[in-house]
Simulated assay, not measured.
Amino acid sequence: MKAVLKIFALIALATLASPTFAEERWQTLPEPAPMPKPAESGYAQVNGIEMFYQVFGSGEPVLLIHGGLGHGDIWSAQVADLSKDHKVIVPDSRGHGRSTRNAEPFGYDLMASDYLALLDYLKVDKTALVGWSDGGIIGIDIAMNHPERLTRLFAQAANVTTDGVDPGVATNKTFGAYIARSGEDYARLSKTPTEYDAFVTQISHMWETQPNWTKEQLGKITVPTAIVAGDHDEAIKREHTEYMASVIPGAKLVILENASHFAMLQDPEGYDKAVRDFIDAK
């Protein structure tokens, strides 16, 4: 995985030098706007780590879970919109952003447990969940194993087996630029800013074998679920997204137009509308 990340970094440098890159919206990687000022922020002691979180607004809660190697600030546009009438909870996953990690092996079940412990810490019994990439996978784990904690699940750019990942992502320019940016953000935000390679090595062990859920497991989900993907997602095969929507009972398939894995940055207004249309539906 480390070798793949180096390839990504080289691709990102070539991307920045290329005047023809990013002609289409789905090829761009906009910088997120600064986060609004939180009503509350801090660190929760959960499962042997310090988990950074921010809380915005008031109303029915919604938990936003970012993707692998990222951090919660990617959700700034969604926070600005949803916090008008929701209590929006935005953490950094273990080892990501400002949250710490320990020697325990990464696993989606462990990360789901972190988020449940954070909800307990914040005294939130039940919430809508919007998850992107790894965040969507964590949301599916919670929906399968702790459905009583979720009102709705909006899972974007997630996969449920490792073969759902498109191998072409290894040479994709936009994804390469994201990897390069993530390394810079890690150095800026993390309490262990020089340990990015060690962090990537540790989490890569999870990505090699997880998730690996069966059709029967997914078929037991009772939480109202939207399975969401950009129509130009670089990392997840379209047929895999469609498979997920077909085996999760009652799942709604949502395809975001002219958008990729990074739809929340490329089309924040359209993304916010898709989220609201689902989590606020009566």
Rank of each mutant, 00 (worst) to 15 (best):
I221P: 11
T171Y: 03
D233S: 07
A229L: 07
H232K: 06
R188D: 12
L218S: 07
E239D: 14
K215Q: 08
T214C: 08
G168Q: 10
T192L: 00
I221W: 05
T201Y: 05
V169M: 07
W207P: 12
L189I: 05
E234D: 10
A170K: 09
Y178D: 02
N212I: 01
I227V: 15
A187I: 06
V169N: 03
P167A: 04
K173C: 05
T192Y: 03
Y178K: 09
A198F: 04
D185C: 10
A170I: 02
H232Q: 02
I179A: 09
V228Y: 01
T241G: 11
I179R: 05
A198D: 15
P224A: 03
R188Q: 14
A198M: 13
Y178M: 01
S182H: 02
T209E: 12
A177Q: 05
R188M: 08
S190A: 09
A198K: 13
D166K: 00
G176V: 07
W207N: 14
D166P: 01
D231Q: 06
P193C: 04
I203D: 14
E234L: 06
A177S: 14
I227M: 05
H205K: 15
E239G: 12
V223Y: 01
H232D: 03
I179E: 04
R238S: 15
M206N: 15
I203T: 15
G168K: 03
R181Y: 07
H232V: 01
E184Q: 13
I221K: 05
A187K: 10
E195W: 01
V228M: 07
I236G: 10
I179Y: 00
A170C: 06
A198P: 12
N172S: 00
Y178S: 07
A235Q: 13
E184T: 14
D197A: 14
I236C: 03
R238A: 12
E184P: 11
R238Q: 15
F175S: 10
H205I: 09
Y186G: 09
W213A: 11
T194G: 13
G219M: 01
I227S: 01
A198C: 14
T192Q: 06
T201L: 08
D185Q: 14
T214L: 00
A198E: 15
V200I: 10
A229G: 15
I203Q: 13
E216Y: 00
Y186F: 12
A187L: 04
P211E: 09
H232Y: 03
E239H: 11
G230P: 14
F175M: 04
G230S: 08
I236D: 09
P224Q: 02
E234R: 00
A180E: 05
G230Y: 05
E216S: 14
Y186Q: 03
P211M: 00
A170N: 06
T174I: 02
E239M: 07
H240D: 15
D231T: 11
D197K: 12
